[in-house]
């Protein structure tokens, strides 16, 4: 826990300047956005000490806009802004719900969606919703622009598809349709601010027959990266939904995850919580539809 007394900080005012510094410095700098995780990691020596590229003042990267068929979120947008955005609440509610749980108000005010994505904690609450909303990440460098689907962005534990001269500038998510519903679930060890033991995002598309036409499920904190629960998705799609089928489907999640023991819980507990959390999520989604008179 030592002070960062010997570190240079570059603070460009524009994206262009930032990309230029990145081209020049490459691996020698580490990008700091909100910095809420990076500062601790660097002070604790978990992350090597490097000079910092502070993009916190590049206000052109703070926005939430409606695109053609997606919502475009500037990488510096804070979780407070995401959670309170009418656009996101209306068209990507599970992301707003997740944004509300990523940490305290103080963290939400400062931490950014881009920082959260690049920090790449397997337990990050914002990532599972982005998986099921088919997020695309926009990476810029002086060379040009790349668009990377979120699933191929993560190649392993904290291994990312991003070059040292590239900056994550935007996240695009699909808009939820009328016949879609979803839920974000978090199991932490405290009712207040707590890091997830397991988190999950569920997105379902109803058919006219009280069945799921399509299901997407992503879980966090149960593998080196966020993972899709393909086995569950398969077991649910087009099937009759009742208590026993949703239990069976939820139970299949153990095929998709590879949790480990850590200070917050054992692998065994995480496996069981994954199943139970999915059961709770499915029950809530189905119950809501039943309540609505279906």
């Amino acid at each position: 826990m030592n002070r960062l007394h010997d570190i240079e900080v570059y603070s460009p005012k524009t994206l262009e300047e930032a990309l230029e510094i990145l081209r020049r410095e490459g691996d020698r700098v580490k990008v700091i956005a909100g910095g809420t995780d990076l500062i601790i990691q660097m002070k604790d020596g978990i992350m090597p000490r490097k000079n910092l590229l502070n993009i916190y003042s590049i206000d052109e990267l703070r926005y939430i806009r409606m695109g053609n068929d997606s919502i475009r979120i500037g990488a510096l947008t804070s979780f407070t802004d995401i959670a309170s955005s009418a656009l996101i609440r209306n068209y990507a509610r599970i992301l707003a719900d997740a944004a509300n749980t990523i940490g305290s108000i103080q963290i939400m005010n400062k931490a950014s969606i881009g920082g959260n994505l690049v920090n790449a904690s397997p337990a990050a609450d914002s990532i599972p919703p982005l998986y099921v909303l088919d997020a695309v990440l926009v990476l810029r460098s002086v060379e040009g622009v790349r668009e990377v689907p979120i699933q191929s962005f993560y190649r392993g534990y904290k291994k990312l598809d991003i070059r040292s001269d590239e900056l994550l500038t935007e996240v695009r998510v699909r808009r939820m349709a009328e016949d879609e519903d979803g839920i974000f679930l978090k199991h932490g060890l405290r009712l207040g601010d707590a890091i997830s033991v397991v988190n999950a995002a569920l997105l379902v598309k109803w058919d006219g027959d009280d069945r799921f036409k399509d299901v997407k499920i992503a879980l966090g904190a149960v593998a080196p990266t966020v993972v899709r629960a393909r086995s569950c998705e398969e077991a649910l799609t087009g099937k009759e939904l009742n208590d026993s089928t949703i239990w069976d489907a939820a139970s299949k999640v153990v095929n998709d995850i590879s949790p480990i023991d850590d200070v917050r819980g054992t692998a065994e507990y995480r496996r069981e919580m994954s199943v139970n959390l999915l059961y709770i999520g499915l029950w809530e989604i189905i119950n809501k539809r039943n309540q609505a008179g279906w």
Partner: peptide, 21 residues
Amino acid sequence: TVLLDGKAVHSCLTIMAQVEG
């Protein structure tokens, strides 16, 4: 906790370069 441009933030997780101006 302090207010940074009116919003509550952790002063322990804010570096001086971010405070400039």
